[in-house]
Amino acid sequence: MILSDSAKLQISQTAKRYPKVRSAILPALHIAYEEHGYLSDQIYEEIAQILDLKLIEVAEAASFYTMFPKAKRGKYLIQVCRNISCALLGSHHLTAYLLDKLNVELGEITADGLFTVVEAECLGSCTTAPMMQVNAHYYENLTVEKVDRLIEEFRSQK
């Protein structure tokens, strides 16, 4: 078993809130993702087992959404909004700047294992563009200076 007992418990508890247990797939995927940082076939199997659902139901659903990657990412997953409001204020440059600064390709993990930079569609932070999401948090109204400082902070926290 990959999932911890507490995750398992949380999943089965969550399922009780829904009239139909299949609805608990998304919450279960969130719980698993939060615990592991990525998903795998094994985790799909476990979720299916906990919820007494078919593997295919879990696997299909998970594959549809962007928030349940199957690949390992850096400790800090940086998602730069590439959409219009952010783009008008330099998000493309932001992405390029980050890649350059971290010396990494889009989607790859930095050598120190800390960072992965990807592009995202609009994250609902358009009036505070440009922005990026790092793990669960939004960092908004970004400037070069702010980005530099954030990266420093992440590095020092390790």
Binding site: D41, Y44, K54, L55, I56, E57, A59, E60, S63, F64
Partner: peptide, 21 residues
């Protein structure tokens, strides 16, 4: 039965059995 599904979305949608099967 449950041994075939459509995965991902948009034009990436792919027809496959569940993982490992």
């Amino acid at each position: 039965e449950d041994d075939l599904g459509a995965y991902q979305r948009s034009y990436h949608t792919e027809i496959l059995p569940p993982p490992g099967r």
